[in-house]
Computed example of a mutant assay.
Amino acid sequence: MTVRALVAADLEQASRVCMAAFMGAVADSLTPLGIQTFSRIASVEGFRTRMAQDNLMLACEQEGRIVGIAELKEGRHVAMLFVDPAVQQRGVGKALMAAMIEQARVEVLTVSASLSSVPAYERYGFVCTADPAESSGLRYQPMEMRLTAPV
């Protein structure tokens, strides 16, 4: 298992991994608007647009195949963390999270976790910070993780 930077040639695979994980674990809890919003975010063009911004995008690769995707926005916010359903519970998410933590540029890392992913983020060390909310049909739980002791 190797964690590396996502490159343009990976975008089709990255989009497929995200959509497979999303459809299997999140989509059933959302309205059609939420599914449409996420589909746009996880599209090849959505990835391509964000690659040009201050976003660290990572791929976890096994045997030449992308099995996980992570995105760290501006060094401060976990914008995406998806693992191929066929390899979940095998350390892929943990490896991607560790790589994002290494690249974080803040003392407190945040995430707007899908409601079904809250237990996973709690295992990584995140805690809920507010009531669940919704934006563009996507329901999420605000969470954060303190990376360093307060100054």
Results as ranks from 00 to 15, higher is better:
P85S: 09
E122R: 12
G91D: 00
F82C: 07
R48S: 11
E134M: 06
I35H: 02
A86I: 01
A42L: 01
V78Y: 03
I69Y: 00
P150F: 13
F47H: 12
V127R: 11
E71N: 14
V87A: 13
I35T: 02
G75F: 01
D131A: 14
S116E: 12
L72F: 08
R90L: 10
Y124T: 02
A133R: 15
T31H: 14
Y140K: 00
C128M: 08
R146G: 01
G24V: 05
A130Q: 15
R90C: 04
E74P: 03
E122D: 12
M97S: 07
Q62P: 03
V87M: 14
R40Y: 10
Q36G: 13
V26W: 01
V111W: 07
T129I: 15
V67F: 05
A130E: 07
I35N: 06
P119L: 11
F47M: 09
L109I: 09
M145R: 14
F126I: 03
S117Q: 09
R76F: 06
Q103S: 15
V118S: 03
V127T: 11
M100N: 05
S29T: 06
L109M: 11
A120C: 14
G24S: 14
G137E: 05
D28H: 15
L56S: 05
K94L: 10
A98F: 08
A149N: 12
R50F: 01
E122T: 12
P32F: 10
I101M: 14
Y140F: 15
A5Q: 11
R16K: 13
M145P: 03
H77G: 08
M100C: 13
S15Q: 02
S116L: 14
D84F: 02
P119E: 09
S112C: 03
V78R: 00
L11Y: 12
R90A: 02
S39R: 01
P150Q: 09
M80W: 02
D10P: 04
G125D: 11
D28Y: 11
A79H: 12
A149Q: 10
G34H: 04
I66S: 05
A149M: 14
G46Q: 01
A59E: 04
D131G: 13
A25D: 04
P150E: 06
F82R: 03
A8Y: 12
L81S: 02
R16Q: 14
T2F: 07
E12V: 15
K94N: 07
T31Y: 05
R4H: 14
A120Q: 15
H77F: 13
R146P: 00
F38V: 03
S112M: 04
T49I: 01
R50Y: 00
M19K: 02
V78T: 05
E144L: 13
V78P: 00
E45A: 12
